[in-house]
Amino acid sequence: MLNRNSISPLPVRRLKSVLFSCAVAVMALASCKDDDNKVVPDEVVNAKKAIIPENGKQYTYKIVDSDGTVETSVTQVKSVKDSAGMSVSNIQNVVKVADGQYAVDYKAYSKNGATTYELQLPSVFAALIKELRPIAYIEDFDLTGFPQYQIFDNKGTVDSPVTFKGDPINMKIKMQIIVEEGDNIDAEISSKITYKSGKVVKEEAVTTPAGTFNCSKWQYSYVTVTKFQAAGVPAEESTETINVSLWTAPEIGIVKSVEESSEGETSTTELQKIQ
């Protein structure tokens, strides 16, 4: 008789870990904790400037998960091109993990008073296959829901909206879980990510190892529905809502943010230095 606990927790846990990383990368925005003791500056965010990292600089972040895992992320503009009279920044975010690193490329541009982040099919999902490969043979992999768009109102004042465009991200993996003694087990994992629009709830000064910045604090959420089924094991389905608090500054992008799941897991990111 197959022990269900020897099968489902490992692939589902790894799946969620990579999906959360992707969700951060999708919009090039990550996570960090609030500090109610900060003093609101006299001069708030300049409404005319885009929320895009400055070309020619490199931004290094520290990412800490609730399980104690610490990772590093480096973001920089790789190039700026003119498209129909509009400057489009090609940005790369490289996340360094324990056994290597993965990169996500995306575009950002400002138009009609709003900054848009655009992500095509991300290479980050190759990391998921890499995670699963030691424990399973991948038979089929399907991913839809791209391009994704996240749109910030450049004003960055209280009630300024952040909205999302694009279909929900859907992923389905068919595989055979490797069993050392006995027959391999047919299994399938599917996951759906749906973003919910949000807004600025506060303007405040935020201090990080990289300095003090006048920030807009945005709040929004996304919902993940994960399903797991395997031969001889009852199907499992879990739904999580992840609440995001995000601090941004014009011509920088992320300063801080925090993601907290409905299960109490958190992922915290903080700007460490600008070079």
Rank of each mutant, 00 (worst) to 15 (best):
K192H: 01
V64P: 02
V200D: 00
N112M: 12
A50H: 06
A25W: 01
R13C: 13
K165P: 01
S267V: 12
L128A: 08
L15E: 10
F164V: 02
N55G: 04
Q219D: 08
A136M: 02
E203F: 02
M86H: 06
F152R: 05
I91M: 09
A98H: 06
K96R: 08
W218F: 15
R4Q: 13
V24H: 10
K196G: 00
A84L: 10
L19W: 08
M27Q: 10
K57R: 12
G198Y: 04
V26F: 13
S262H: 01
D34V: 10
N154C: 03
V162I: 15
K111M: 10
K81H: 09
D67T: 09
L143K: 09
G100S: 01
E263V: 04
M171L: 15
D34H: 04
Y137A: 15
I189M: 13
Y109T: 10
D36E: 11
G113F: 04
C22F: 12
Q101V: 05
P161M: 02
C32F: 10
V40Q: 07
G211Q: 02
N170E: 11
V94H: 03
D186M: 13
P41M: 02
I252S: 08
I51N: 09
D99Q: 11
E265G: 11
S245N: 10
W247Q: 06
F228Y: 14
V39P: 00
G264T: 07
K81V: 14
E131F: 03
T226C: 09
